[in-house]
Amino acid sequence: MSKRLLFIINPRSGKGQIKEHLADILDIMIKAGYQVSVHITQSGGDATRQTIEQSKDFDRIVCSGGDGTLDEVVTGMMQLAPSERKPIGYIPAGSTNDFGNSLGIDKNMLNAAQISVSDKLFPCDIGRFNSDSFVYVAAFGIFTEVSYATSQDLKNLLGHAAYIIEGAKQLRDIPSFRMQVEYDGNVIYDEFIYGMITNSKSVGGFQGIIRGNIGLNDGVFETTLIKMPRNPMELNEILGFMTGIIPDSEMVYSFQTSEIKFTCSEDVPWTLDGEFGGNHKVVNVVDENSALEIAIE
């Protein structure tokens, strides 16, 4: 009896290149012994709905799109009981594909398709963000609006340049948030222009921003919090740290933790895997160790 696979496709990601390879990808899946059903996403959140509603009828869910599409599938899967969750395959087709790169998934779509039906499954950590989920990054502050405020057409046309163009607009007036941060018995109270909790080797396509030994199923996230600069020298120090020129900076908190809580007196806009994650005064983030299986090479 054939195994069943649901293939969820975001046709607009990465200049729509999936259309050129669809027949070959389906052939790879069928030759791997799967009976394949295809769903083309219709709107934001559709991949989450399809995962929740249909996963019980399938042995594997494979998605193709950007990291946001993967995030939607993971969000849907994490709403199911652990015993009901199915392995996920990922065929990256976005403009950055941070998480796919971290997992070593090939950028070539046909090679990624072979990996998506692999029997080698990686038990990956998933982030619990209040009642939501994220795959590789939850962030707030400067530049975080860039990914979801930039149109898909501009992302497709310019790639990383689109993020730089949109990000430059935010440099005129740097917003900051005074927060209390609690983790592992420690309490920080400071003013931040940026913060991220990550489970990835790169963010925004840039490597070297995240410090420490990075494991995608080690039970801890990497946390980076950047303080509000008070003068040009402090801003230069931050830029030096972020670009790897300066190894350490008193302007940046950097640590690993399995659970962290943020409290702010005002609503803070967050992004989850590059998509808008809502405005929150209180955020609890928990590392759910080895919560989902993802096909790797």
Rank of each mutant, 00 (worst) to 15 (best):
A47P: 11
Q54A: 10
L110V: 05
R172F: 15
I126G: 06
E288V: 12
N10C: 07
F276N: 15
G127Q: 01
M233S: 14
D287Y: 00
D125N: 00
C63F: 08
I260K: 05
K31W: 06
Y253K: 00
F58A: 11
G240Y: 02
E297F: 08
K281P: 09
K227F: 07
Q256V: 01
S2P: 13
E53Q: 14
S176Y: 12
M1L: 08
I214R: 00
N279Y: 15
G44S: 13
Y90K: 07
I226W: 04
M1A: 10
K86E: 10
F58G: 09
Q114S: 13
Q54K: 13
S95Q: 05
Q79W: 01
F192G: 01
S13D: 04
I214Y: 03
C264R: 01
P123G: 03
N217M: 03
D46T: 07
G208K: 05
K169P: 11
G205V: 03
L235H: 08
S83E: 15
K281T: 15
V282T: 13
E293K: 15
Y148L: 06
F255V: 02
R49L: 13
L239G: 03
F177K: 15
R211M: 09
V73Q: 07
W270R: 06
G278F: 09
G94W: 00
K227D: 10
S249F: 02
L121F: 05
M77F: 00
Y189K: 13
G141H: 02
I238H: 03
G94N: 04
I209Y: 05
M251D: 07
S147Y: 08
L235S: 14
E275L: 05
D24A: 13
T243S: 14
N186L: 04
S200H: 03
D218Y: 04
V74K: 00
L22R: 10
A32T: 02
G16N: 06
G66H: 03
F140C: 13
L158A: 13
L292R: 06
T144Y: 11
T96I: 13
G68K: 05
P123I: 01
V268I: 14
I246Q: 15
P175F: 05
D67S: 08
R60Q: 06
C124L: 15
I25Q: 10
Y189L: 12
L5G: 04
E237R: 11
N199W: 03
V220P: 01
E166V: 00
F221M: 04
P229L: 05
R4P: 08
G100L: 08
I91W: 09
D125Q: 02
S147Q: 08
P229D: 02
L5M: 08
T150P: 08
T150F: 02
F143I: 00
C124W: 09
I226T: 04
D71I: 02
N186R: 11
I193K: 01
V137N: 12
E84L: 11
D71F: 14
